[in-house]
Nucleic acid binder design. Structure first.
Length: 419
DNA sequence: TGTCCACAGGAAATACGGGGGT
DNA sequence: ACCCCCGTATTTCCTGTGGACA
């Protein structure tokens, strides 16, 4: 037995115990909390009067149910992380309980579109949730899916409240989806349907077919972004439960709140930032300092890029890798699609992939642009023709990590030499 | 002022692969 | 096992265009 080693480990354990920052990690990540803890957390946030005004409005809107009327649809606007989902879920659970006590039939569902999906998948998800159908990838018509949903609801006579979260995330056939929900479904079922459509795009109804839009009788509710004070409340609650007392330096909570506030008042991001900072502090064996918050913010941003690329289609990954290679090889301050495409073809041949046409490649390039991996713009060189100018401006470290991630992900780290 | 480059990006056609029905 | 239908991915086809240059 290596006594030196065991001593060292012993010391480390003691030291880390002394300097432990995190008391209960689960309170830094909502998904790890069991339901009753979530409810308790939400209640303590709402007791802090953080979303009072919005809850008042919700109550007012839904009082029709108790009068035996059908409330009109509700459109909710607010940036991501302003507590739309949390507040509405909380409210609906409450409402459900109230209805139950008064013997009113009510049923609510939460359709979460936070990852974009086509109409078919969205309807399929809904059908699954109300147990009207199983999950399909393909092979069944939209019509059939709609019919199954109608069939399930046909004989339900109570109130059916459908909360569509991030409702503008329907890809492609936006209209089909909302024509169904707004015009067709209510006509074919006995249930009294009330939609809650939440989105962060203020102008999303302008995408709707005018005929559907005119059919949509609705109220509107606006979630204002959290201000720094609200965020501090929310963070304090978490800190109290998740961290040991006295481990957070002065000003840290204020700083996290301020940073999150500047970025659209997103509470989830604020909590993530707190969580990451606490992790770093724990690893380093120090208190949670202002400097660690900065570092955590940087790491979170990089992690997001890496996660995005890892879960992207393979050709998008190849496009990214090819652009990185081409960028390193180019002497100029930018490159055009053709150069990037040549690099992509080389990458594909070395990686044993069938390259796509330049048309498809171009779409991937603009996708990378919208996600912020690259900057590109279309630029005319007069007689030299028009082409897209591509610039890669990521921090060196992130660029390398992205490249490594892609190679690893495509299982090619051995095949390709470092660029 | 008109020409013309070299690609962007929309629309339609086609290929692909899962899934139901028989 | 076979065929056909479907949504999605990709290709094919094609029109449009900003501005240097003649």
């Amino acid at each position: 037995m290596n006594t030196k080693l065991s001593q060292r480990i012993g010391h480390r354990l003691e030291a880390s115990d002394k300097q432990a920052v995190i008391k209960d990690r689960r309170f830094l990540d909502d998904e790890q909390l069991i339901y009753s803890e979530q409810v308790e957390l939400v209640e303590s946030i709402f007791n802090a009067k953080v979303r009072d005004a919005e809850i008042e409005e919700l109550i007012y809107h839904f009082t029709d149910i108790f009068r035996g009327h059908n409330p009109v649809h509700l459109i909710v606007w607010g940036m991501t992380g302003t507590g739309k989902t949390l507040t509405i879920q909380f409210f609906l659970t409450l409402l459900n309980e109230l209805c139950r006590r008064r013997g009113i039939d009510m049923w609510h569902e939460h359709l979460d579109l936070s990852t974009p999906r086509p109409c078919f998948r969205a309807l399929n998800d809904l059908a699954c949730q109300i147990k009207a159908s199983k999950r399909y990838k393909k092979g069944i018509s939209l019509e059939e899916m709609m019919y199954r949903i109608e069939d399930k609801l046909r004989d339900y006579e109570g109130h059916f409240v459908l909360f569509v979260d991030e409702c503008d995330h329907i890809r492609h056939d936006f209209d089909t989806f909302y024509t169904f929900l707004i015009r067709r479904l209510p006509q074919r079922i006995k249930a009294k349907l009330t939609l809650i459509l939440a989105s962060n795009k203020i102008d999303w109804p302008s995408q709707l077919d005018p005929r559907v839009k005119s059919f949509l009788r609705n109220n509107e509710l606006l979630f204002k972004p959290y201000n720094a004070e609200d965020l501090q409340h929310i963070l304090q609650i978490r800190v109290k439960r998740a961290l040991h007392p006295g481990t957070v330096k002065d000003g840290v909570i204020e700083k996290i709140a301020a940073m999150a506030c500047r970025e659209h008042g997103d509470a989830r991001k604020a909590v993530t930032l707190l969580s990451k900072s606490a992790d770093l502090a724990e690893k380093k064996g120090s208190k949670l300092t202002l400097q660690l918050v900065d570092q955590a913010a940087k790491e979170i941003e990089q992690d997001q890029y890496l996660l995005m690329i890892r879960t992207a289609p393979v050709h998008l990954q190849a496009t990214m890798a090819a652009i990185i290679v081409a960028w390193r090889n180019t002497k100029k301050s930018s490159m055009d699609t053709r150069q990037a495409y040549d690099s992509y073809r080389q990458f594909c041949s070395r990686a044993d992939m069938q390259p796509l046409t330049i048309r498809a490649f171009g779409d991937f390039v603009s996708e990378l642009d919208t996600y912020g991996f690259i900057r590109s713009r279309v630029l005319s060189r007069g007689r030299g023709g028009r082409s897209r100018d591509i610039v890669l401006e990521l921090p060196m470290e992130l660029e390398q990590r992205l490249y490594d991630t892609i190679l690893l992900n495509l299982g090619l780290q051995k095949k390709l030499p470092d660029a």
